[in-house]
């Protein structure tokens, strides 16, 4: 890869001064590519975790137990009304120090590292919004439809799986789409707890090479690309789930 693009970017630097060093120097190239993967992994993990949190939260909000419903409401209020960056710092620096350490042969390492805490922190952050989004979708499913399922012998669990969630999903996909795009962009906050993702690495590269504008351009392009892929995927999904005469 570097063989192919290297000469071009080296030449670009020599002739114009635009320094995309990670596209022609092995060391910077390696950490840049690593960061690309870390970011992708981080984003995928956060998306999945936040969806799971949303599912469980929306399910719990329909539960009989008042304590469960109240604690979910509290969770949503807390995570919706405080800055995600502070949440992340609390997870990593406060809760993180309270979790047990494991002996890695000579040195101790926390069970959950910064990557893990980034997934947990931002997963819960976006999960609070997902819970609300799923709930609004569930509320849009007519009770008469749920009753029809009940009359056919569906248990609460089964009617959620086969009828309520599939219908609710179609209703809330646009809102979900927005929230997931937001989450994708929010993952750059992991920079604050030193997860070696794209933002963090870009910062390191520009600190070492004083090429801030170039790195900014690369960051923008990188995230525009990722958001584009996500939006395209969600759009495809929406089309696939579209049902004639509904929604």
């Amino acid at each position: 890869m570097l063989d192919i693009i290297g000469p071009f970017f080296k030449n670009l630097y020599d002739t114009t001064g635009w320094n995309f060093i990670m596209f022609y120097e092995q060391y910077e190239y390696d950490r840049f590519v690593d960061a690309m993967w870390v970011s992708v992994k981080l984003i995928v993990a956060c998306l999945i975790f936040s969806l799971i949190v949303g599912f469980i939260g929306a399910w719990g909000q329909g539960a009989k137990s008042k304590i469960l419903r109240l604690s979910i409401a509290g969770y949503i209020q807390f995570f919706r009304n405080t800055p995600p960056f502070i949440q992340l710092l609390v997870f990593y620096f406060v809760i993180g120090t309270l979790t047990p350490q494991v002996d890695m042969g000579g040195y101790n390492e926390a069970i959950i590292g910064s990557f893990g805490w980034a997934v947990i922190g931002m997963g819960f952050f976006a999960g609070a919004f997902n819970t609300e989004i799923f709930r609004s979708g569930i509320e849009a499913v007519p009770t008469s439809t749920v009753e029809a399922a009940e009359a056919l012998g569906y248990s609460r669990m089964k009617s959620y799986i086969y009828i309520i969630f599939p219908l609710a999903f179609r209703v809330c996909l646009p809102a979900l789409n927005n929230n997931l795009v937001n989450l994708l962009k929010t993952t750059t906050l992991a920079y604050g707890i030193a997860v070696p993702e794209m933002m963090y690495t870009a910062n390191q590269i520009w600190s070492d090479n004083v090429n801030v504008p170039e790195m900014m351009i690369v960051l923008f392009i990188y995230y525009i690309g990722l958001v584009g892929i996500l939006v395209w995927g969600m759009h495809r999904w929406e089309q696939k789930m579209r049902v004639p005469g509904y929604g």
């Binding site: 007519p142 008469s144 439809t145 009753e147 029809a148 399922a149 009940e150 009359a151 056919l152 012998g153 009828i163 599939p166 219908l167 179609r170 789930m241 049902v243 005469g245 509904y246």
Partner: peptide, 17 residues
């Protein structure tokens, strides 16, 4: 009970998906 009793509603209530 519901295995034994079928019910049809005024508004059909089919599963639209």
């Amino acid at each position: 009970l519901r295995k034994k009793v079928g019910m049809v509603f005024q508004q059909y209530n089919l599963f639209p998906h």
